[in-house]
Simulated assay, not measured.
Amino acid sequence: MFDNLLPPLNEHNLPYPDTIHPIVVHFVIAMVLFAFFCDVVGYFTRNSKLYEVSWWNMFVATVSIFIAIIFGQIEAGLAIAYDAVEPVLNLHTIIGWSLSGIVAALTGWRYVIRSKDPEVLPMSYLGMGVILTGIVFFQVYLGDKLVWVYGLHTTEIVQAAKEGLL
């Protein structure tokens, strides 16, 4: 009934030329990791200007992570998730949503810290930065696995699935 309202899917099983989620999410990854780097360097060199750089990176990353999740959900829904890929895709989805909350919470905390004294950063915040970095690296591993091992949205996997080979 509504089939004529939806755009046709291409050889990647997407309604647009290629995946958008990886583009946006790599932006988020870079901003979060760079923010942590600036915090660490700022802490040890006592250069509080780096805290400002970190704050803005986290702020933009917080907005961007939700855009990444929207495209991730769309692309996960359009992916041909055969049995072997489902556990990894589900874990990647759960951690992605969790990261959005963690990044938003840390950005909120950072806002409070910045409002009180922009030249001080507590060690507990840096500790959370270490934990966040570890979760981000694990999430990158899962995303890489979805593409490079399971081939989601690659033309070969889409074609194999359409031919009933998966």
Rank of each mutant, 00 (worst) to 15 (best):
G72D: 11
F37W: 07
L121G: 04
V53Q: 15
D18F: 07
V130R: 08
S48N: 03
F34W: 12
H26S: 14
S54K: 05
F44W: 12
L132D: 09
A61I: 13
G108P: 13
Y16Q: 03
S124I: 01
V158W: 06
P122H: 01
L132Q: 07
D3Q: 10
V41A: 02
F59Q: 01
V120F: 15
Y150V: 04
T19L: 10
R46Q: 12
L14G: 00
A104H: 10
V136P: 07
M31F: 06
F37R: 11
D83N: 10
E86T: 07
Y125F: 12
I29P: 02
T45F: 14
G151V: 02
Y82L: 13
L6E: 13
G42M: 03
F34D: 03
L91Q: 12
F66E: 05
D83P: 08
G72Q: 14
Q73K: 04
A30Y: 02
V28K: 02
F66H: 08
F2Y: 00
K145F: 02
Q139K: 08
F2E: 01
L126N: 06
Q73M: 04
I113Q: 05
N10F: 14
W109H: 03
S100D: 06
L78T: 00
A79Q: 07
T107F: 12
M1A: 15
A81V: 05
K116W: 14
Q159R: 08
V140N: 05
P122Q: 06
P87K: 06
Y150M: 01
W97G: 10
T133Y: 10
I113E: 11
L91V: 11
I135R: 04
R114V: 01
A105L: 08
F59S: 00
D18C: 05
L5H: 00
N47E: 06
P8F: 15
E11F: 03
F44R: 05
S54T: 01
V88Y: 01
F27H: 07
V41S: 00
L89Q: 09
A160G: 05
I94T: 09
Q139V: 11
S124D: 01
Y141E: 10
Y141T: 13
P15W: 12
L91G: 10
L165E: 03
V103G: 06
F59T: 05
P87D: 00
A84Y: 03
R110W: 13
T45H: 08
L126K: 02
V32C: 06
Y51G: 04
Q73V: 13
Y82K: 15
V120P: 14
W55S: 03
I65S: 02
H21E: 10
T93M: 14
I80Y: 01
P122M: 06
F138Q: 10
A68M: 13
I135S: 05
F2P: 02
E75S: 09
Y125S: 12
L166H: 08
Y16R: 03
Y16M: 00
N57G: 07
I23G: 02
N90F: 15
L99E: 01
G96M: 04
V158A: 03
E163I: 10
P118R: 11
I135P: 02
Y82W: 05
P87N: 12
L132W: 09
I29W: 08
I131Y: 11
G96A: 04
E75M: 11
A104E: 14
I94L: 07
P8S: 14
L50V: 12
W56Q: 10
L166G: 14
D117S: 11
